[in-house]
Every structure is written in C-alpha cells, then in structure tokens.
C-alpha cells in the first residue's frame, strides 16, 4: 500500500516570463502521504501546484496514477465564490458539477456553517470563505489535494478544523500537496515529505 504512488514528479522545471522559476524538483506522493513545499515568497511554490494542475507549462514529468481516481482538488488564493450567490446555491451548484451524490449536511455541520446557509457570500468573512472552499474540496472525491497556503490568515479554531479535515483525508488513503511558510503540524501523519525550493 505504501509503495503505491498517487502522483510522481520528476525533474520538474518551469519558466515564466522567460525566467527560470524552479529547476529539477522531484518528489513522489504516496497514498496516505503529505508533501510540504517550503520556500520563500516568490520562489515558485504556487507555480508547482499550477504545473501539477495543468495550468502552467512545464518541462519534466508529472505522472498521475490512473489506478486511483485521477481527479485533482485544488484550493488556492481565489475561492471561486460568486459574490451574489447564497451558500446554499453555491454548494448545490458545485454538488451538481461534481456529481456528488451524498448529502452535504454532515460537512456543513462540521464547519459550523448551518446558520449562514441563506446568506449571500459577499457578507462572509475570509475564514468562512476558506471553509466554503474546503467544503467544495470535499465534494470532488479526489485522491490528490493541492492546497495553496491552506491555513494562512485563519484563526486557531478554523485552522484545527482544516487540519482535522486533512488528516481525515490522509487516513482514507488520499494524498496532499501543500505549500506554506508556516509549518503545518500534522502530528498524526507519519508520511511527511518536505521539499525545499529556493
């Protein structure tokens, strides 16, 4: 089980505006594993995630294991929220897009959002918007999660909630690739790999 990889990155390098951002990045994401990408601002942490999700052009190899569900879940700085929609509308829309059959009541309760269900998204705070992003992530049913600075700018409670969510995902056999300057303390997870880029 542990030898099975979800995603393999070999000799990845990326150019943007004719400048090399990063060079020769290689790592393997196993199921039940976490890859933490560390680096300074502007070192191209987000760009790695963008390459994996297929937005940026890259040189090198990115292999996604087809045995598993090869969908990718991505949470970035932008939350893909339409300001005019209510939370309920937002959730039902993405639920239909992802063909998610189960009810999302459980997750809503988990995130403590039940009382805001009919409120337009423009009235929500930053942390609540982030929570909605993670709600959407739950519905994708993907093995691989790409998280771009998942806990920056959040308070302790939300942070622990999100970390809980991530550990649960890992326990189920998923894999997470996350970038952050802060170190996410994932105590229960053993299989953590750190990639440093400069």
């Amino acid at each position: 089980m542990s030898k099975e990889y979800l995603l393999e990155v070999k000799n990845l390098s990326c150019e943007r505006n004719y400048k090399l951002i990063f060079d020769n990045v290689s790592f393997k994401l196993c199921s039940g594993g976490v890859v933490l990408i560390n680096g300074n601002n502007g070192s191209g942490k987000s760009s790695i995630l963008m390459c994996i999700s297929g937005i940026l052009e890259y040189k090198g190899l990115i292999k996604i294991n087809k045995k598993y569900n090869d969908k990718i879940g991505y949470v970035g700085h932008k939350n893909a929220l339409c300001e005019e929609d209510t939370i309920y509308e937002y959730l039902t829309f993405w639920k239909k897009i992802y063909n998610y059959k189960k009810d999302f009541n459980y997750v809503i309760n988990f995130f403590d959002l039940r009382k805001y269900l009919e409120i337009p998204i423009k009235f929500l705070s930053f942390g609540q918007k982030k929570k909605l992003s993670f709600l959407r992530l739950q519905m994708i049913k993907s093995q691989i999660w790409l998280l771009d600075e998942p806990i920056s700018g959040l308070d302790k409670r939300t942070r622990s909630l999100i970390i809980n969510l991530i550990t649960k995902h890992i326990e189920k056999g998923g894999g997470v690739i996350a970038t952050s300057h802060q170190i996410i303390n994932l105590r229960k997870v053993k299989n953590i790999m750190r990639v440093k880029i400069d």
């Binding site: 297929g54 969908k71 991505y74 932008k78």
Partner: peptide, 17 residues
Amino acid sequence: KEDYKNGTLLQYHINRI
C-alpha cells in the same frame, strides 16, 4: 470578468470541465 476574478474559471479548468 467575474468568473476570472474569483477563480471560478480556474476551478473549471482543473476539474476538466
């Protein structure tokens, strides 16, 4: 504009719509 600004377009692309 709106879909581009709030990242919905990005999500569409990643989710292969």
